[in-house]
Design a protein around this nucleic acid. Structure first.
Lengths: 212, 212
DNA sequence: GCGCCGTCCGAACGGATGTTCGCGGGAACG
DNA sequence: CGTTCCCGCGAACATCCGTTCGGACGGCGC
């Protein structure tokens, strides 16, 4: 049963508008006035209904203790992912470590938490170039990586090539003693190197494309 | 003068943490306890300082009337975009209209507002098939569309083909009296049809790829 | 009619909460 | 030393605000 009475719908709309405007929830009497209701108990009554139906969560006895929930009664949190730099030739990126993680981020990318799937210390990099275009990662995309040191074959990883002093995003394969870094672009050749020349910076989690 | 005393920094941090957890601001006495302060007047004093320095905005005489301001206090809002269905052969999707918008959504996709760039009534569809793979839209992706009836040449639009009774996502081109619906997949042929056979449902805004 | 239920009304109670005021300690300065 | 300013302390006050209670109105089924 998720049908709302007109009054409840009205209150819900007012809640959203009020929070949008003030950044804090209304008091019961704010709702009363805003919806033209003659008694606070009516507001209380309908707020209980809204809570039963999963649209809000209330902290009783606490003024303005109303929390708006999203669809299905869940709450979507936002994670601010530090944008540490660009993956581009000749420019090594700083290695995030847990102690001084994100200390020198240029910027932060706010994303819903499902983009990082509960992983911690995720960081972001802006992609330059089309070497991963067939993996649907375009120039200008922002990729999210988790800081790991090891990866499985076929993983998309950001690796630091020591001899070149640069970082690239490639798929990694171990082949009898050497490393193959495979771009997802049939026009480009794989890079072959040795294990001691590569340092894995992070494993690809997901990507977004900034809207044009 | 934007230097903060330790106490003020502490209160600011507490404010952020409290709002993150509860979705509504703390009362003065919440701050008092949370920061180990012995008097509410100290909290009031420092809140005034924080307001002078531009970190918060207060609505006087109103409980929990504290609003975080500033670059680091900015609030990234979440938009719940209704997922109206799947773009797949043989399955027409409901046409969203402003009056009964999203009334029958299967689900809602929470995204940061930058994904819809301030547009209203945006809806989402799950993509089936790889017909737009060269536009970096994969099978399983979720695309966001704004409900428009008209589009420019080259726009990626969801169109309803009346004779087939199905909806697809294609690039649209008008060519001397007829319509060309161009997939972004070189292995697939364009669809040619007439203007009275197509009904534009929405224009592509952005897409996300649910994390694996 | 009668009872039940969802909804609304008005008033009152008591706790929660923002505000104010007097006081004091400590640092900086003349 | 005296003054001023920043900051903290404790208590009291007035209001804000969630809660509760008795009552009422209308629709519905029996």
């Amino acid at each position: 049963m998720t049908t709302l009475s007109p009054r409840q719908q009205q209150i819900l709309d007012f809640l959203r508008a009020f929070i949008e405007e003030h950044d804090y929830p209304p008091s019961i009497r704010d709702i009363q006035e805003g919806c033209g209701i003659s008694s606070t108990s009516v507001v209380d009554y309908n707020l209980r209904k809204l809570e039963e139906k999963g649209f809000i969560r209330r902290d009783r006895e606490i003024s303005r203790g109303i929390e708006l929930l999203g669809a299905r009664g869940r709450r979507t949190r936002i994670v601010e992912v530090p944008l540490l730099g660009t993956i581009a030739a000749g420019q090594p990126i700083p290695v995030p470590s847990s102690d001084r993680w994100a200390a020198d981020a240029e910027d932060y990318v706010p994303v819903t938490e499902e983009m990082v799937r509960g992983r911690t210390n995720v960081f972001a990099l802006k992609v330059r170039g089309k070497s991963m275009i067939e993996d649907l990662i375009d120039d200008g995309d922002i990729v999210f990586l988790e800081p790991v040191r090891h990866a499985d074959d076929g993983d998309r990883v950001a690796v630091w090539l020591k001899d070149r002093g640069e970082v690239t995003l490639k798929r990694i394969y171990r082949e009898n003693g050497r490393i193959r870094l495979q771009p997802a672009n049939s026009a480009m050749e794989p890079i072959y190197t040795t294990p001691d020349n590569v340092e894995i910076q992070g494993r690809f989690i997901s990507s977004i494309r900034p809207s044009e």
